[in-house]
Amino acid sequence: MSSALLERVATGARWRSWLYRGLGAAAAVGLLALLGVLIPLDWVTTLSSVFMYIMLAEGWNILGGYAGYLNFGMVTFFGVGAYTAGVLCTQYNVHPLLTIPLAGSVATVVALLVGVPALRLRGVYFAILTLIISFLTQVLVTNLGITGGASGIYMPALPFDAFTNEQIFYYAFLFLMVLTVLLAFLIEHARFGYALVAIREDEDPAEILGVRTTWLKTQALLLGACIAGIAGAIYAFHTSYIEPQGTFSLDISIDVVLMSLVGGLGTWQGPVIGVPLMLVTAQVLRILAGELPFLGTALPPEFDRVVFGVILILVALLAPSGVMGLVRRVRGRRLTV
């Protein structure tokens, strides 16, 4: 076979595989859209939270996964988004729909203020700094008058019945999640994504070779922050009450890292796999533990925390590339056969 022909066949095969993948993804999204009207209320709520965490994890993954800068303060941007929506809506009577893009913008601005100095630090020091900034923001929000301090903000309710309400949030989170996953997919296959990976692999040579590392890292942080801010705003309306302890909880930051890690850092599929896996694990554990005689049915939520902590340790130690790492290894093996 001539090489030109070979190439055409290969291109055709590549196109076909893209087509199949695209159709598969569309079918999956269609199925999820259909589920929104088919499944019971508490499932709708659970899936909404899965979608929200996928958004957060994809947003985190841009800087944390591809570029290897572990942000342990993702909740800062999520909380800022939630509070922007809350404050604008309750104090300035801004229309709820308008607060959502504004929340994304404010979170982006905060990320810019934080990121420009913070991204000069590397490795663990960047991680510690982002952690402390999330504490700092929490203290600030707790003590400001405009945020309602420790007593928080009651969000206005939407004028629908409970089920419709849940469905609205279901579709909102689904829509945004699909956009976020698509964005992550595009980044992964674009120069931007390759440059971020180059930063993760070895930052100094990347910089010497002309990769504008500082600007790229900042962009990655801003994108993630914007996504987290939007997610936070919708979360605020969904949960109907926000206060500093829960909205800025370190648990959220850690869960986002853990879920991305379990799925596979630096892959667009990672969060899509990791988030449901962890949330389902938590549910199953609750059910299983409820059956056990000595723990009883009233299992405190801290039990999940302990299990999540153990999983974090085990995955970091034994399977640092997560589920995607295992998938790739199996695929690789198949190819060499």
């Binding site: 850690i254 801290e302 039990f303 925390r305 302990v306 999540f308 902590g309 153990v310 970091a316």
Partner: peptide, 8 residues
């Protein structure tokens, strides 16, 4: 992870 386990 250790932090989360001990705290929980």
């Amino acid at each position: 992870g250790v932090l989360v386990v001990i705290e929980g």
